[in-house]
Design a protein around this nucleic acid. Structure first.
Lengths: 135, 135
DNA sequence: CTTGACTCTGTACTTAAGTACGGAAGTAAG
DNA sequence: CTTACTTCCGTACTTAAGTACAGAGTCAAG
């Protein structure tokens, strides 16, 4: 019962996954997906597992994982490495929180600049430019 | 009184600005800084204005501006385009806020995954992996 | 006057995540 | 059977922000 029907061409698979055909090939070259056998010089066929794999990659990317990190996650795929997977997700979470803190500092600084800018008119120099000059 | 002393070599300038010599040259190629004249095939000298320029670029980068955007800001440098500068900063602020919102969604999703992961032990598959599979 | 450090110039390489292309071969419709 | 579309394969190009390097010239100290 493990034989899911492999009926999709690469073009249909790409379409279904919402990515470019070249992206599929690129993932294959990267080792993120393996290519099905080619029946006597014919055309490769793909199945639901391949579609799920593309979804996995894209979901992980949306959560901020790089393709190299996705490759690490895929090594844990058999389900017996739950702890490692969680640890990696925790590292990524810490990472995301650090980036959040950075962006919040930047937001505050930009907002301050925008408010000061042109509030004081008749100035020799634009406060925004001056602030960047000095910082 | 506009003649600030131009005494720094490119190495000293880079050191003072905390960047690589090659970075200075790269900014010159990009048109973000102009190169001082070369006295009869000699060595170029840099002054405080050049140092301020590097600081400006680096500050703007820290606020999330790309080098192309920095180039745009630099065109407004004479102080008579305060409004344009503010508009650009406002666009960047909106941009930063959008990225903040994205990251916050990601944070929530990752945190949820980490919490569910291994909370349910004895599972066939790791919930984190399964969630990415399905998403 | 030589040595070693620095500068100048141009070109090439780096990373990440793809995208584009050219030519050959397979495949489906009419 | 021909035409048109895909697929396959390998290679090259893209963007951003630099980094690295080779070969030639310059400069200051000893």
């Amino acid at each position: 019962m493990n034989e899911t029907t492999e009926t999709l061409t690469i073009g249909v698979l790409a379409e279904a996954a919402g990515v470019n055909v070249e992206t599929i090939r690129f993932y294959q070259r990267k080792g993120l997906m393996q290519e099905p056998d080619r029946p006597q010089g014919g055309i490769r066929r793909y199945g639901d597992a391949d579609l799920a794999r593309v979804h996995f990659i894209k979901s992980a990317q949306r959560l901020g994982f790089s393709l190299d990190e996705v490759a690490d996650l895929l090594k844990l795929e058999d389900g017996s490495h739950c702890t490692e997977a969680r640890e990696q997700a925790e590292r990524k979470l810490a990472d995301v929180r650090a980036r959040l803190a950075d962006l919040q500092r930047i937001e505050g600084a930009l907002q301050g600049l925008v408010e000061r800018c042109c509030a004081a008119s008749g100035q020799v120099q634009c406060p925004l430019i001056a602030a960047l000059q000095a910082a």
